[in-house]
Write a protein that binds this DNA or RNA. Structure first.
Length: 817
RNA sequence: GCCCGGGUGGCGGAAUUGGUAGACGCAAGGGACUUAAAAUCCCUCGGGAGUUUCUCCCGUGCCGGUUCGAGUCCGGCCCUGGGCACCA
C-alpha cells in the first residue's frame, strides 16, 4: 500500500503523451473525424478557474471521443489582441507584444500541467502576422463585396487622455483613468453588413438542434425581427417627412405626439435655434453609454415646438425629442400612443400630453385609461372610418392606405445592427485600407499584404500612441494612382479574430489563404463547441455571420460553424464571479501543486452540473483528493500481489461476485451515457458508488482478489477521461497491456443485470406504505397481486373498496381507496 | 427597462424527465487507532412527534391550479445570476 502522490506521476504521463505525439492528428485517417473545441483564452496573465473548468470539460469529451473510435481534433490557441494588453503596457511600461507573449508562455505551461490532450502543433496566436494577414485579406474581399463600408458613428471621447474609451472604461459618465467627463464624438468608422444576413441568421436557428434553446432564443430576440408598418408624418417647412416604424399600426389614430431620438437629424436642426433643445440633447447622451442605461434612466424630453401632419387624419401632431428613443433602432423616431403603450403613457402624464383611446376591449368592458395604458389588442373606436375594425383588420387596412398614399406601408424591421469593427487602438490588426484624395478608399492589394502592425513604438509615457500618430505607418502611396496617401489607422475589433479562428486550426500554417479548403472541409464544422454562456450572443453570432459570408465568397462550403454547443456556467466564490478586482481568485497552480491536476479536474467536473455556476470550495477539492487516495490505496494493495500475466477480466460467479458484476456493468452504462450527455457530476457519483460497494464487499470478504480486480480495472477505465494520469498509472501498475489513451472505450454486458428483481413502492392514498419486489417486466396483474398480498398495504386498504389502481412498470403502484 | 437562465437539508448537488425527495460528496457530531497531531477507518446526520429494531405528520422560494400522483406541467408573484452591441 502506498500513498497517492500525484506530483510523482502526472509529469511522467504528460511527458509520455508529449513524446509519443499522441494528440497530433491529420486528415489521413480512416476513423470518422470529430472536432472538439473550447473557446480560446485571452492571454491575460495566468489561467483562472473558469479556464480550468472549460478546458477540463473539453478534455473529457476529447479523450472520450478518441476512445469511442473518432479521429479527434482538439486544438488550442490565443485570442491575443485586446484592451488589457494596452492597459498593462501603460501601467508597467511594457510593450503589449512582450506582455502578451510572456503571458502566452506562462499560460501554456499551466495548461500543460493540467494534462490536456491538445494538438499543440496547431497552436495559434491571433497577434501573429501570419494569422491576422488573412483577416486583412478577408476584409478586402468583404470590402469588394460591399459588406464592409464606412459611416460616421459615435465614440466615447476622453478629452483629458485624448483617447477613445470602451464602454467598460466609462464609469458614471467619466473616463476611468482621467476622471474627465466623457464626450461624444462622431467619427467615420468601418462596419460589416451583418444586417444583410438577418433573415438567414434567424431562420437557420430553427434547424440547429445541437444548440441549447436558451442560446437560440437569445439570438432570435437579439436579431429581433418584427413585422410592422412604416408611416410618414409630413413636417411643415421640412422637405423630408418623419418616418416612424410601429408594430401597432392599429393604434395610429391614437397618436398624440411624435418622439425623436436626441441624435435624430431633425432634433439637431431645431437645436440650432433653441439653446434649451441643444442643452437637452448634449445633456441626455453625455453620461449614457449602454442601452441598459438609456432604458433605465428617468424618462425626459423637450418639445421641439414643431408640428407634424397625421398621415390619415391630417391632424397636427406635436414633435418632441426624448431620451428613451434609440437612434439605432428603426428610424430613430417613434409615434407615441399614450393610451396603448405604457412608456408613452408615463411620458404623456409627466408632460401633460394628450391621451386618446382608440382600442377598446373586445368583450365590451370598460377600461379606465387614466389608470394605465391599455396594451392589448381589441376593437377600434373613435378612429373615423376605421372604427369598428379589429386590431388585426386595421393593420392591413392602414398599411394599404399608407401604401396607396405614398406615406409608408408594410415593413419588416430587425433589431440587429451592422457590426462596428473600427477601434481607435494600437493593439489590434490594422484595417488594410489606404485613403487617397483622388481614388478614395483603396483596399491594400494582395501583393502588399500584410499591413504589419509597427512594433517599434514608444511606450514609456502614460499613453500608447494610436496608429494615427505614427507617421512612418500612416504615410504611404496610393496603390492605384501612385500619389502620396495615408493609411487607415483604425484597427479591427478583436471579435474579428475570434470569428474565424476555428477555421484556421484546420491548417494553421497554410500560406496561400485563410485555410486549406480541403483540410477545412474535412474538419469542419466543429462537432462540439464549449464555452461560457456570456458569449451566447455576440461571439457566436459573429462567427455564424463570418461562416456565411465566407460561404458566399465561395471560400467554404458550410452554413453553420458549430454543430453542437455546450455553454458552461461560471466559477464563483462566495457567491460572486471570481475576479481580480474582487480579490477572490484562486490560482490553479497552487491547487495543482497541492492536490495534483487530476484532483482539480475531478472536482471541477463533480461540484456542479456543467451548465450551472460552480461554487469553488477547497474543502470539496480536498474531498476529491481523498476519494482518489482511497482508490489509489485500494489499487496498490490489490495489485501488489505478483501477477501471472493472464487476466480474463471476468467475474467468478462465486459468492457476491454476481452482484458486483451486475453493479459494475450497470455503472459502465451509466457513466457512458452520462459522459455522452455531459453529466460528469453524476458520472463521478456513479463511480464512487461502485467503488464504495467494491470496498465493502472486499472488507467483508464477500469477494476475493479475482473479483475485485475486474471491478477495479473498470473503475480505473471509467475514471480515465476525467483523471487521465491517475488512471494510466494504475493501469500500468496492474500489468495490463498498453495504455488507456489508446484503448477503446469499455463496453458493458446488459445481460449481467437484466431480468433481476426490482423494488418498487406501493402508495395508498398518496402515501408510500411499503415496497414490493417484482420482476422488472411484470404485468399489471402480477403487480396487483404482489401489492395487495403485501401485509402492510392490506392493512391500509382494510376492506375498503379500491377506487383506482395505477401500475407504472418499473416505477410505482398507486392505489386509491 | 428589455431578453435568457436559476431558486431542493448547514453547504455543493441527485431525483430514471409526471412516479419512494435528499443519491454522491462537503461540513458537523460521536467513536476506533495514535504519546500527540495529521492521515485513515466505523456510526449518526431535513424538521417535528410518538407506544423509538419501528411508525406517523410536515417539507423542494411564495400563492393558486391541473393530475390517481407535481421538485418536475400551467397561471400569478418574490428573490437572484448572465447579456444588452467598444471587456473578452
Amino acid at each position: 500500500m502506498a500513498d497517492y502522490k500525484p506530483q510523482q506521476i502526472e509529469k511522467k504521463w504528460q511527458d509520455f503523451w508529449s513524446a509519443k505525439g499522441t494528440y497530433r492528428v491529420s486528415e489521413h485517417n480512416t476513423r470518422k473525424k470529430y472536432y472538439v473545441l473550447e473557446m480560446f483564452p485571452y492571454p491575460s496573465g495566468r489561467i483562472h478557474m473558469g479556464h480550468v473548468r472549460n478546458y477540463t470539460i473539453g478534455d473529457v469529451v476529447s479523450r472520450f471521443k478518441r476512445a469511442r473510435g473518432f479521429n479527434v481534433l482538439h486544438p488550442i490557441g490565443w485570442d491575443a489582441f485586446g484592451l488589457p494588453a494596452e492597459n498593462a503596457a501603460i501601467q508597467n511600461s511594457i510593450h503589449p507584444s512582450i506582455w502578451t507573449r510572456g503571458n502566452i508562455e506562462q499560460m501554456k505551461q499551466q495548461l500543460m500541467r493540467l494534462g490536456f490532450s491538445y494538438d499543440w502543433s496547431r497552436e495559434i496566436a491571433t497577434c501573429d502576422v501570419k494569422y491576422y494577414r488573412w483577416e486583412q485579406w478577408l476584409f478586402t474581399r468583404l470590402h469588394r463585396e460591399g459588406l464592409a463600408y464606412r459611416k460616421t458613428s459615435v465614440v466615447n471621447w476622453d478629452p483629458v487622455d485624448q483617447t477613445v474609451l470602451a464602454n467598460e472604461q466609462v464609469i458614471d459618465g467619466r473616463g476611468w483613468r482621467s476622471g474627465a467627463v466623457v464626450e461624444k464624438k462622431e467619427i467615420p468608422q468601418w462596419f460589416l453588413r451583418v444586417s444583410d444576413y438577418s433573415e438567414e441568421l434567424l431562420g437557420e436557428l430553427e434547424h440547429m438542434t445541437g444548440w441549447p434553446d436558451a442560446v437560440k432564443t437569445m439570438q432570435k430576440n437579439w436579431i429581433g425581427r418584427s413585422e410592422g408598418v412604416e408611416a410618414e408624418f409630413r413636417v411643415d417647412g421640412q422637405e423630408m417627412p418623419l418616418k416612424v416604424f410601429t408594430t401597432r399600426p392599429d393604434t395610429i389614430m391614437g397618436v398624440t405626439y411624435l418622439a425623436l431620438a436626441p441624435e435624430h437629424p431633425l432634433a439637431g436642426e431645431v437645436a440650432k435655434n433653441r439653446p434649451d433643445v441643444a442643452d437637452f440633447i448634449s445633456r441626455c447622451r453625455k453620461t449614457l453609454v449602454s442601452e441598459a442605461e438609456i432604458e433605465t434612466v428617468e424618462k425626459s424630453g423637450v418639445s421641439l415646438e414643431i408640428d407634424a401632419t397625421h398621415p390619415i387624419s391630417g391632424e397636427k401632431i406635436p414633435v418632441w425629442t426624448a431620451n428613451f428613443v434609440l437612434m439605432s433602432y428603426g428610424t430613430g423616431a417613434v409615434m407615441s400612443v399614450p393610451a396603448h403603450d405604457q412608456r408613452d403613457w408615463e411620458f404623456a402624464k409627466k408632460y401633460g400630453l394628450g391621451i386618446k383611446q382608440v382600442i377598446f376591449p373586445k368583450d365590451g368592458n370598460e377600461f379606465d385609461i387614466e389608470e394605465r395604458a391599455f396594451t392589448e389588442k381589441g376593437t377600434l373606436g373613435d378612429s373615423g372610418w376605421l372604427s369598428g375594425l379589429t386590431s388585426q383588420e386595421a393593420f392591413a387596412k392602414i398599411a394599404g392606405f399608407l401604401e396607396e398614399n405614398s406615406a409608408g406601408g408594410t415593413r419588416t424591421n430587425y433589431r440587429l445592427r451592422d457590426w462596428g469593427i473600427s477601434r481607435q487602438r494600437y493593439w489590434g490588426a490594422p484595417i488594410p485600407i489606404i485613403h487617397c484624395e483622388r481614388c478614395g478608399e483603396v483596399p491594400v492589394p494582395d501583393s502588399d499584404l500584410p499591413v504589419e502592425l509597427p512594433l517599434e513604438i514608444d511606450i514609456d509615457g502614460q499613453r500608447i500612441p494610436a496608429l494615427s500618430k505614427i507617421e512612418s505607418f500612416t504615410a504611404t502611396v496610393c496603390p492605384e494612382c501612385g500619389e502620396p496617401a495615408r493609411r487607415e489607422t483604425d484597427t479591427m475589433d478583436t471579435f474579428m479574430e475570434s470569428s474565424w479562428y476555428f477555421l484556421r486550426y484546420a491548417s494553421p500554417d497554410f500560406e496561400d489563404g485563410m485555410f486549406d479548403p480541403q483540410k477545412a472541409s474535412y474538419w469542419l464544422p466543429v462537432d462540439q463547441y464549449i464555452g461560457g454562456i456570456e458569449h451566447a450572443i455576440l461571439h457566436l453570432l459573429y462567427s455564424r455571420f463570418f461562416t456565411k459570408a465566407l460561404r458566399d465568397l465561395e471560400l467554404l462550403k458550410l452554413d453553420e460553424p458549430f454543430e453542437n454547443l455546450l455553454t458552461q456556467g461560471m466559477v464563483v466564490k462566495d457567491g460572486a464571479k471570481m475576479s481580480k478586482s474582487l480579490g477572490n481568485t484562486v490560482d490553479p497552480d497552487d491547487m495543482i501543486a497541492r492536490y495534483g491536476a487530476d484532483t482539480v479536474r475531478m472536482f471541477m467536473l463533480f461540484a456542479a452540473p456543467v451548465e450551472k455556476d460552480l461554487e469553488w470550495s477547497e474543502r470539496g477539492v480536498n474531498g476529491m483528493f481523498r476519494f482518489l487516495g482511497r482508490v489509489w490505496r485500494f489499487a496498490t494493495e490489490l495489485l501488489s500481489e505478483p501477477q501471472n500475466g493472464e487476466h480474463s477480466g471476468k467475474f467468478s460467479a462465486k459468492g457476491k461476485a454476481t452482484e458486483l458484476e451486475a453493479s459494475t456493468n450497470r455503472t459502465i452504462r451509466k457513466v457512458t451515457e452520462d459522459i455522452e450527455s455531459f453529466k460528469f457530476n453524476t458520472a463521478i457519483s456513479a463511480v464512487m458508488e461502485l467503488f464504495n460497494e467494491l470496498g465493502s464487499l472486499w472488507k467483508e470478504k464477500e469477494v476475493g482478489r479475482e473479483d475485485a480486480r475486474p471491478a477495479l480495472l473498470v473503475i480505473t477505465r471509467l475514471l480515465y477521461p476525467m483523471a487521465p494520469h491517475f488512471a494510466e498509472e494504475i493501469w500500468e501498475l496492474s500489468g495490463e497491456s498498453g495504455n488507456l489513451v489508446d484503448k477503446e472505450w469499455i463496453k458493458w454486458d446488459e445481460e449481467s443485470f437484466e431480468g433481476a428483481e426490482i423494488t418498487i413502492p406501493v402508495r395508498v392514498n398518496s402515501r408510500v406504505r411499503n415496497q414490493i419486489s417484482i420482476k422488472a417486466d411484470s404485468d399489471e396483474e402480477t403487480a396487483r397481486e404482489a401489492a395487495l398480498s403485501d401485509s402492510r398495504v392490506a392493512e391500509y386498504i382494510a376492506g375498503r373498496e379500491i377506487k383506482n389502481f395505477v401500475y407504472v412498470p418499473k416505477r410505482i403502484v398507486d392505489i386509491r381507496v
